[in-house]
Amino acid sequence: MSASFASAQRAAHDAAAAQHYPQGALYVVATPIGNLADITLRALHVLQLADTVACEDTRHTQSMLRAYGIDKSASQLLAVHQHNEAEAAQNVVHRLQQGQRVAYVSDAGTPGVSDPGARLVAAVQAAGLRAVPLPGASSITTALSVAGAVAHSTEHGGFVFAGFLPVKNAERANVIAQQLAHEPRCVVLLEAPHRIGELAQALAVLGERPVTLARELTKQFEEVTTQPAQALTAWLDGSPQRSRGEFVVLLHPVPVVSDAGDSHRVLRLLLAELPLKTAVRLAAEITGASRNVLYDTALEWKRQDGAQD
Rank of each mutant, 00 (worst) to 15 (best):
R303T: 09
E191P: 01
L44V: 04
L78N: 12
G148F: 15
H60C: 10
L267P: 00
H152Y: 13
A6F: 15
V205W: 01
H45R: 15
H83D: 07
G238I: 07
V248P: 00
I39S: 05
I286H: 02
L269V: 00
E246L: 07
T226R: 14
P32C: 09
V254H: 06
S139M: 04
Y21I: 00
E246M: 05
E191A: 02
K72Y: 10
A54N: 13
H20P: 00
V175T: 08
L213P: 08
L44I: 14
H252L: 08
Y21A: 00
Q125E: 07
T212M: 06
F247A: 07
R268F: 00
E222Y: 06
L267W: 03
R172N: 12
Q230V: 02
L129Q: 10
A143T: 11
V113I: 13
D296Y: 08
L44D: 12
H81F: 03
R66S: 15
I70K: 07
V266A: 01
V53N: 03
A214G: 10
H81A: 09
A118E: 02
I33M: 09
Q241L: 11
H182D: 02
I39N: 14
K168I: 07
Q62N: 09
L47S: 08
P22H: 02
V121R: 11
V132S: 08
P116A: 07
A118S: 11
